[in-house]
């Protein structure tokens, strides 16, 4: 049971953003994906989630081919993501931002939603309760009613994570989830990510903070110029000469 990228490629005109990338994200584990700026990490997440058309190769989730599936269908196949450039719903409250994450699990008929029948009202109440539980877990219960657009980046990133988790994904793709957070905040998230993996979710973690990645992942992939240049256990990979060269002059050590 895994999310498998097989020879995945993407070209933007002449620019090769990824070339023959093979990555496996198993369930119940945190898989790291690192690489210098412009290496093609976000491009891979965008291809997996159906936001960019794939130029070559295949993407499979537990033996279902999702290479050319539309984004909403990919979510329903059990994939969720957060965005590197934060994308919350700015006009909505924090709570409403999370509520939309439950969309995949909403079952009441269109007619009862239109007419406001008890089935629809019960569903809304049940989703609210679940959203509040998530807020509790992320320590943001007191911010539930605030407009999400006015929160700090750290809080907005957590809103995105809660929203993604609300869809109860089998796999979650986190694109630089702790960017802009302090050590206390990122430590709390490290614990949370490990809990998620322990509960059986497969996590793909993209991060520039190598210490954070080393701490959480048993297996990491290194991308440079759209190609994988190394993979394996963090200690081995980070001492690989090719990786050191890619990061030379890099500010990310």
């Amino acid at each position: 049971m895994a999310l498998i990228l097989d020879n995945l490629s993407k070209r933007f005109g002449g620019v090769v953003a990824s070339e023959n990338v093979n990555i496996t994200v198993p369930k119940g584990k945190i898989t790291g994906l690192i690489g210098p700026n412009g290496a093609g990490k976000t491009t891979i997440v965008n291809m997996i989630t159906g936001m960019l058309a794939v130029s070559g190769g295949t993407i499979r989730v537990d033996d279902t081919d999702i290479t050319r599936a539309p984004a909403d269908q990919i979510c329903r196949a059990g994939l969720a993501r957060t965005f590197q450039n934060i994308r919350i719903l700015p006009e909505n409250s924090v709570l409403d931002n999370i509520l939309i994450g439950f969309h995949r699990h909403e079952r009441c008929s269109t007619l009862s939603a239109l007419l406001g029948l008890p089935a629809s009202r019960r569903e809304t109440a049940a989703m609210r309760a679940r959203a509040e539980a998530l807020l509790e877990r992320f320590g943001m219960r007191h911010l539930a009613e605030y407009p999400a657009g006015g929160l700090s980046y750290g809080h907005q990133r957590r809103v995105e994570m809660m929203r993604a988790l609300a869809s109860e994904p089998e796999y979650i793709l986190l694109d630089e989830p702790i960017a802009g957070m302090n050590d206390v905040e990122s430590d709390a998230l490290a614990v949370l990510f490990r809990d998620l993996a322990d509960s059986g979710i497969g996590i793909l973690l993209i991060e520039h903070n190598l210490r954070f990645v080393t701490r959480l992942c048993q297996h990491i992939y290194v991308l440079d110029g759209g190609r994988l240049i190394a993979e394996g256990a963090p200690e081995a990979v980070l001492s690989d000469p090719a990786v050191l060269t890619a990061y030379v002059g890099g500010e990310h050590a």
């Binding site: 159906g50 909403d72 006009e91 939309i100």
Partner: peptide, 15 residues
């Protein structure tokens, strides 16, 4: 509400 504010987000959540 989600679609109006951000189509990509809405789609990524299965809408």
């Amino acid at each position: 509400d989600a679609i109006r504010q951000n189509e990509a987000v809405a789609a990524s959540l299965g809408v």
